[in-house]
Design a protein around this nucleic acid. Structure first.
Lengths: 221, 221
DNA sequence: GATACCAATTTGGGATACCAAGGTGGTGCC
DNA sequence: GGCACCACCTTGGTATCCCAAATTGGTATC
């Protein structure tokens, strides 16, 4: 793999893993020494991550994008549009057996599964579901939206009950999709996304003070 | 304006204006001499245009993205999802007076208007309509989709009748939106997008031979 | 003590030099 | 004539250097 892609990957992981906090200033030279590559690939990585919304410009200079509650709400609306469209396409497909692969993915999480896994599988559910539609643009839209949501979801305080409910909703969506019941699947998915958004925004708004204390910039809705 | 943004702008214009044909090979050094900037801003521009889908990598090396009929069809599905969602949001708005601005935009085109203007305004209709929703993500999605469609629409052979019908459809959509009739507006917009796609793909498929003769790579659906 | 101003450092933007990999054309052998 | 092989050249990837602007820190003045 070229160094350019490697820098991008490492930097993205540092940002998504909150190793670099939302709102922190970035300098190309710091990244250069931190990652061990020269400025050229570092700049290429920053340009890419900028289009993903993970970093942004702060006048002259780079900043890790803060958590933006207003943005999270807009993303939810966007997700609802593209995910529902993808799901409807999938429901119209002749072969919907592929949903079983996703169901197996969900089953792979049990009580012993580390939190990281739950986090990743929770996002992959939506991403893989969109992939099934066969539409590259819908798929990319969902994947990019989930990437943007990733840090916020990581910060969200979720109790066992909420987690279990989300998993149940995922399974219900798959069940409806397997039957080809597009309207029901779409209805369930919409509700799931809206519910997720509400819990997410509420949780972050409540924790805002604590998050800021940890050095994480959280912009209000 | 920084040189980097200028290079990006110029290069995008050259690609969208078909000054550089779909499928053509690009070398960083050629662009460098053509635009009159060094490789650093050229590379930055290429990285950005890559995320817009206007250029792509061809193993080692850059290529102006060919016109891809399968991609055009997928984009239409994607557009339908995001544009309809945006339109429904707009219909739910308290103040829908802003649609008048768009209507005025349409009126600005008459028989004397050069073809370039028609082309631009035809796309801006969809972009500005999405902007009214107030959702940044839906707006960007529509804008980026229209950018990707731009070259294909430029190549499309459109008769007067088709053009007039498209304009009438635009106006009908606005009329429904002004009344807040979301279902009707959505229905009209869906139909418009699907119809546009059909005419576009059909026209390009028919002209494929001629387009290739002009040096334009056209990938079949 | 506050503030205005200046020097020094830092920073991103741009230019250029260098490199390894891949492609191309030519040449000589079969 | 055809094919294998090799030297050369082009190309993107990387590193490094330079520059202008902006930030910073200190200092002198009021």
């Amino acid at each position: 793999m070229s160094q350019m892609q490697s820098v991008e990957k490492q930097l993205r992981q540092m940002i998504l893993g909150l190793e670099i906090g939302p709102g922190e200033k970035l300098t190309e030279r710091w990244i250069e020494s931190r990652i061990g590559a020269s400025r050229t690939p570092v700049r290429a990585a920053l340009l890419r991550l900028e289009t993903e919304g993970l970093v942004g410009r702060d006048g002259r200079g780079w900043t890790v994008s803060p958590i933006n509650l207003a943005e999270l709400e807009q993303i939810a609306v966007y997700r609802e549009a593209v995910e529902v469209a993808a799901l409807r396409l999938t429901c119209a497909l002749a072969d919907r057996g592929a949903v079983d692969v996703i169901e197996a993915m969900l089953e792979s999480c049990d009580n012993d599964t580390p939190r990281e896994e739950w986090h990743r599988v929770g996002m992959d559910f939506h991403i893989e579901l969109a992939r099934l539609s066969g539409n590259e643009f819908l798929f990319r839209a969902v994947r990019d939206a989930m990437t943007r949501l990733s840090r916020a979801r990581w910060l969200e305080v979720r109790d066992e009950a909420a987690l279990a409910r989300a998993w149940a909703e995922h399974r219900a969506i798959l069940a409806a999709a397997r039957l080809g019941d597009a309207d029901e699947a779409a209805r369930l998915l919409s509700g799931h996304i809206v519910g997720s958004r509400d819990r997410l925004v509420t949780s972050l708004a409540n924790d805002r003070r604590g998050l800021r204390a940890r050095g994480f910039a959280v912009v209000a809705a």
